[in-house]
Simulated assay, not measured.
Amino acid sequence: MLLKASAILKTLSDMCSEDEDTLNITSCLQLYTKAILDITFFEENLLVDGDFLDDDSLWKVKELIDILSEPEHLAKESNQRQKPLFVDLDVELLECLHWRRGALLYMYCHTVGERAGWCLQDRSTFLKCLTDGVCYLVKMLKSRSPVHLSDEVSFQDKNTATLLSEGMFSDIHILALMYCGEMCFWALRYCSEEGRATRLTSENSDWSTKHLDFKEVGEKALDKYIFSCEGPLSGQGWNTEKAKSMQDFLKKMTNS
């Protein structure tokens, strides 16, 4: 991964040395994003393999989140400065950035929570991690629009068509549903009243004025996960027992 990232950065350096008038900002940003994804993947694995035991693990998680957020910030800044041009990230890269941030926060919360027996000392920080993690996963799941099925669009495999119409484009999307539902469950099960309604603190303006309803988001994610695994993906090794248990917990909760 690091060798691959190094090669990408070399290509990027060569591109940036070109004449400014011919420089393709979007292509440079895409390459920079790919390098970031490769480098941070290596660092994330070190944290996960070490079970986040170091005292500065949370700081390292936050640092990686900041690094993985840079491409979006750069695109936004570039678009503000260069009105005639529009710099945009490839949807698959953007999807990957959301997924990596959400999955990293999921792994951190899962590891720390299990190690503490879910007797959390700093619930506010834990809840912040859950909130941000759910936010990133929801944005990942909304990065691409579902395939609209019609008489003009046909698939030989009905199950594939069903998944695409639900916006499920890969196994990662299915896993994101489970992670999202599980994090919502943790927020309500282990963070007590703090998790019933919390304001999202994301740089994404679409979320800044909304409240994250862990119950609603969790139920929807688990409903779709169970539907996908017991329907189109039936017999392919996906387990829904844990999801159903969490779903039952969420559905029994009141919104008060």
Score class of each variant (00 low, 15 high):
180 C>Q: 11
172 I>G: 12
173 H>R: 08
177 L>E: 03
177 L>F: 07
144 R>K: 10
142 K>M: 08
136 Y>N: 11
149 L>P: 08
178 M>C: 13
169 F>S: 07
157 D>W: 05
174 I>R: 02
136 Y>I: 05
131 T>A: 12
132 D>N: 09
146 P>T: 05
152 E>H: 12
183 M>R: 02
171 D>N: 15
188 L>A: 04
180 C>H: 01
142 K>G: 07
166 E>W: 14
172 I>T: 15
170 S>T: 15
152 E>L: 12
192 S>H: 15
187 A>W: 01
148 H>R: 14
176 A>E: 02
135 C>G: 13
159 N>F: 07
146 P>C: 13
140 M>P: 06
191 C>I: 05
148 H>V: 13
152 E>Q: 15
178 M>I: 09
142 K>L: 14
137 L>C: 14
147 V>G: 05
137 L>K: 01
183 M>L: 09
139 K>G: 04
189 R>M: 07
143 S>D: 06
177 L>P: 02
147 V>F: 06
191 C>M: 06
165 S>T: 07
154 S>C: 13
140 M>E: 06
148 H>M: 13
181 G>R: 00
132 D>I: 08
176 A>Y: 00
193 E>H: 10
146 P>D: 04
160 T>A: 11
185 F>I: 01
145 S>M: 13
133 G>S: 06
150 S>F: 09
158 K>A: 14
193 E>P: 05
151 D>Y: 15
142 K>N: 12
146 P>F: 05
140 M>V: 02
178 M>S: 08
154 S>F: 12
134 V>W: 05
160 T>G: 09
180 C>L: 13
156 Q>Y: 09
147 V>A: 09
186 W>T: 01
134 V>K: 00
170 S>C: 08
